[in-house]
Simulated assay, not measured.
Amino acid sequence: MPPRPTRTRRSGIRIVGRALTCAVFALAGLLFYISAQTARGTDLRTDNSLLSLGDVIRQRSSQNQQAQAQLADLQAQAQELAGQQSHNPDDTARMDALRAGTALEPLQGGGLTVTLNDAPPNATARIPGFPEPGVNDLVIHQQDIQAVVNALWRGGAEGVQVMDQRLISTSAVRCVGNTLLLQGRVYSPPYVVRAVGRTDALREAVNTDPTIRNYLQYVQVYGLGWKVQESTDLTLPGYSGTTDLRSAGGQQ
């Protein structure tokens, strides 16, 4: 039987474990900072004469590639340090809470899927007394998508996904022209937003949001797309931070 560890050896093990724990949380803090820089967005309806769509995409893609490279390196370091942790239950619980907070792990459960879409290009007013639509009346705007995302968070969502990307706490959506720019990728409608959480609370939050109520008037009058589906088994991917540029218009 091997000799029992001395007091000095046990003390050394505890010190090393604490040091590794501090290092992991420090890296996680840097990860949040980099994520915030990556996801920084601006308000809807910016002056398109200032920046062309191509300029915006190239600028954001370059920034995204640099930030995501740093993110990937920090994640790798955090995982390496986590693997060196002792099996102390308190350390394990803190690490689990940290991973959940950064949305790095896949999430599964019941929830809602909300789909928004542009109106047909030849749409006219469906209800007497309303004016004929202009171009801006027939397309999805940034505030429409953001209103859905914000309502789902307020409704207690455990996680939210827009198109094929999991959102983190600092994620922001931005529309350029009639396309969505999200974390370095460009998307066209229909826009699909998924959330895992209590379906009754999520639906209540969506139904009572004033911006969504205004959007639903345009759905009735001009035919903008709107669909809300409940599910008992949704799976959201973990936040990956990849920089592939692709269009995703359908459901997974």
Rank of each mutant, 00 (worst) to 15 (best):
S171N: 09
R126Y: 00
T92C: 10
L30E: 08
M163N: 15
L234C: 05
L20V: 06
N178S: 10
S188V: 15
I13A: 08
Q252M: 08
N178G: 02
T113F: 06
E80P: 05
V135L: 14
D47L: 06
N207Y: 03
A26T: 09
T102M: 11
L245R: 11
A67K: 07
A26G: 04
I212P: 01
I13K: 12
L20C: 00
R10E: 08
N122M: 14
Q165E: 01
D118G: 05
T235P: 07
R126P: 00
Y215I: 11
V56Y: 03
R185M: 05
L182G: 03
R9K: 12
G155K: 02
N178M: 07
I145H: 02
L31R: 07
L20G: 02
V186R: 12
G155T: 06
D164Q: 02
T46I: 05
V114S: 01
S61N: 12
R203K: 11
D137K: 01
A78M: 13
Q77L: 11
G241N: 04
G177A: 12
Q229F: 09
V162H: 00
N88P: 14
L107P: 02
P189S: 06
L224Y: 10
D96S: 13
Y218N: 12
G225I: 15
N178R: 14
P189C: 00
G17M: 12
G184E: 02
Q70S: 10
Q142A: 04
S35F: 01
Q252C: 12
L104W: 10
